[in-house]
Design a protein around this nucleic acid. Structure first.
Lengths: 99, 99
DNA sequence: GGTGTTTACGTGGGGCGTAAGTATC
DNA sequence: GATACTTACGCCCCACGTAAACACC
């Protein structure tokens, strides 16, 4: 359960599609797919329904989402605490589901 | 800023010494030293004062500590949410120095 | 056939342990 | 000389991108 996986997770939620999330994070689609696969294996549950038109959050994924965002917010907070704030990477404060 | 680094960080705070923290986490001393080195480089600040009798938290480290613990608590919470609670790895709620 | 995701495969970087080095008492 | 941390070195595993395959419309 690494930071990258959680960022991939929320990015997919934002975009509704893995390939867009991959682009926004600077990865290839398979890399994002792999991240989510790893995350799902770690948690022992499915986080997304795979549909032909994109990826949709499962109930379990919806339960995880707030905590995932909180973790990312805390990590950004730690960076700010130590004077390493990085506002260019779109911190979680204004995150919302696309659409 | 990976989960392992944060666990190493709080373990050192608990133990007051890197080698004890390493033992409690099942790592060698150099591995823990490396983790903290990476964490300090990422944050651009010193987290511990290195003394001949152990490691002492810097003011910056003290600022980071609550957030680090919160992140670990959230990560444990995510595992619980998805039915993968693992109480055997000593979650942060009851952490204390052994003995 | 087009779109979106997954699997396969090869490569590069990171994290570990062991061993040697540095500093303080 | 003992204790605690750091640096050096080598190895293995993980994470990535490219390419091919699969599923659904």
């Amino acid at each position: 359960m690494h930071e990258r996986e959680l960022r991939a997770f929320v990015a997919i939620v934002e975009a509704g599609r893995m390939d867009h999330a991959a682009t926004s994070l600077g990865y290839s689609q398979p890399a994002i797919s792999y991240q989510i696969k790893c995350l799902e294996q770690q948690l022992g549950t499915r986080l997304f329904f795979r549909h032909p038109d994109g990826a949709q959050l499962t109930p379990e994924g919806a339960m995880v989402l707030p905590s995932a965002r909180a973790v990312l917010a805390l990590l950004d907070g730690i960076k700010e605490l130590t004077g390493r704030a990085d506002r260019s990477t779109a911190p979680v404060e204004h995150l919302r589901v696309a659409g």
